[in-house]
């Protein structure tokens, strides 16, 4: 119970002004650190999903879920278990690439399903949508060529299509 671990929370919210502050503010107020946070629209215009990655104990994540659930604009909180979900993140990365290394880098990008989206005289800009662990691996491999700039979106997650709705989407909330 006391060992920290990573947890991914998918928070369905009403698309109202201030909702992101309410959610992120709750984390800082209760002393939980956010590893990554991604927010975006859903299939419904009036709802958004905030995907939050936290590193904390099981007890803490249960607390944070209950506290999130108390926010009026939060409709549902779901802890996404990695083995039941697809998790993805977008990486944009600019790498130094002079003529001698350019092909090497492009081949490596291919292995990771990364695309070259822009090229300059001595650098390449790659885009990659992958599981965050794979993005980390790609960054590591590119590091020796000198990374000029890198930015990631934060992960988003969805339960697998093969997981029955009840199982995968069962909200963690205690109240109906």
């Amino acid at each position: 119970m006391a060992t920290p671990g990573h947890h991914t929370l998918s928070v369905l919210v009403e698309n109202k002004p201030g909702v992101l502050s309410r959610v992120s503010g709750l984390f800082s107020r209760r002393g939980f650190n956010i590893d990554s946070l991604a927010v975006g629209p859903t299939e419904r215009a009036d709802r958004s999903v905030i995907t939050i990655r936290v590193d904390c104990t099981r007890h803490s994540v249960e607390q944070v879920v209950k506290q999130l659930d108390k926010l009026i604009d939060v409709i549902r909180v779901l802890e996404v278990h990695p083995d039941m979900a697809i998790e993805r993140e977008l990486l944009l990365i600019k790498v130094q690439a002079d003529a001698t290394h350019r092909l090497e880098i492009m081949r490596m990008a291919e292995v990771f399903n990364a695309r070259v989206v822009d090229a300059g005289a001595d650098s390449l800009l790659l885009e990659c949508v992958e599981h965050p662990d794979r993005l980390a691996a790609l960054e590591e491999l590119l590091a020796p060529y000198t990374i000029v700039e890198a930015v990631r979106t934060g992960r988003v997650a969805m339960t697998r299509a093969s997981v029955a709705n009840d199982e995968g989407r069962a909200p963690l909330r205690i109240l109906g």
């Binding site: 919210v13 009403e14 009026i72 409709i75 549902r76 109240l175 109906g176």
Partner: peptide
């Protein structure tokens, strides 16, 4: 939708 005062 995110608030219910009804208890099971």
């Amino acid at each position: 939708v995110g608030y219910s005062a009804e208890f099971p």
